[in-house]
């Protein structure tokens, strides 16, 4: 007993010395930490509103409690239920249809010999990523206008022109396509760098054994990027509560709202364009954040366990 007490005292002194020795580290860190406390942690106090009837004049703390009333209303609200289902459908649609594209592009680009052409292609592929959805919605939207290129092409082959942007059955495929158009080139870089980490000897040995290109891709390239693919997939599944606010907000219109409204666009609409009920809106946001958190933590755990790295690193 006595020993440990003395021990802890010297430990304490040692700790003090360690802190003093690192005082500049704390100083350097203080700006970022202070920032995150103010802009990430202080707002979390606002989550109390999810259980309160917000009165502007009484503030967050002074507003009266209402328990789970907002959440009870939430599950009764048809618009919310629709947004929730849409979010999941769109997110899984994205995983199903969009996820393979960057991998495919990376594999194909990797098959090209380096040179000016390859470089130019990659510049073109990655460029749209650097534009906002405000811009991309217009740029790509044009192609799908009533007399845009897509309809010209359809008519060329004898088909009937379609109103892509106002068609409930076509709107989601359009979302997937435009997001592939904007992001798959950029996302392919992750896979390309994973491919470049594969040992060249493997390919040489396969060539000696007479493996053709497709066999090399299937037996060397794909297994070589497996871990990257799994981590990216887990990250995508972890983010299913998002659905892509920026894109949908800029591309959708009232005609397709039934199939395009996701939780985030729903929150925006009820908060800033309809009768404002901050308590209820916060409850919707909290509901989303909690599910999001649980998903991310679980998939991060899975990634760490099986792939040896977290999904966020």
């Amino acid at each position: 007993m006595k020993h440990s007490k003395i021990g802890s005292k010297t430990d304490f002194r040692k700790l003090g010395r360690e802190i003093a020795r690192n005082k500049y580290i704390y100083l350097i860190m203080s700006f970022g930490i202070f920032y995150l406390i103010l802009f990430s942690y202080v707002p979390m106090r606002g989550l109390l509103l999810a259980f309160k009837d917000y009165k502007v004049r009484r503030g967050i703390m002074g507003s009266p409690w209402v328990g789970f009333a907002h959440f009870e209303r939430l599950f009764r609200e048809a618009d919310f239920r629709r947004a929730f289902v849409n979010t999941l459908q769109i997110s899984f649609g994205r995983i199903l249809f969009q996820f393979p594209f960057p991998i495919l592009i990376a594999i194909l680009v990797n098959e090209l010999r380096g040179g000016k052409g390859k470089k130019a292609l990659q510049t073109i592929y990655t460029f749209p990523h650097f534009l906002s959805w405000v811009i991309v919605a217009v740029v790509v939207g044009n192609v799908f206008e009533s007399d845009g290129a897509a309809n010209q092409l359809i008519q060329l082959f004898g088909g009937e022109p379609r109103l892509f942007l106002a068609d409930k059955t076509l709107f989601r495929p359009l979302l997937y396509f435009t997001d592939v158009w904007k992001e798959s080139g950029w996302s392919s870089i992750i896979y390309l760098s994973a491919i470049s980490a594969i040992s060249g000897e493997l390919y040489e040995a396969a060539a000696v054994d007479g493996a053709n290109r497709l066999q090399r891709i299937v037996h060397i390239t794909l297994p070589g990027i497996r871990s990257t693919v799994v981590v990216m997939l887990l990250l995508a599944v972890g983010g299913v509560m998002n659905g892509g606010f920026d894109q949908i907000f800029n591309m959708s219109n009232p005609t397709v709202q039934k199939v395009s409204d996701i939780i985030d666009t729903y929150i925006y609409r009820i908060t800033f364009t309809q009768a404002t009920d901050f308590g209820f809106s916060t409850a919707v946001g909290l509901f989303k954040s909690v599910i999001n958190f649980v998903l991310l933590v679980s998939f991060d755990f899975v990634a760490r366990k099986f792939e040896g790295r977290g999904i966020m690193e």
Partner: peptide, 17 residues
Amino acid sequence: VVFTMYFSGGVIPLYLL
């Protein structure tokens, strides 16, 4: 620091801040 990547207060609390 890393926790802020997994969980956030959302739009309205930040708006009120």
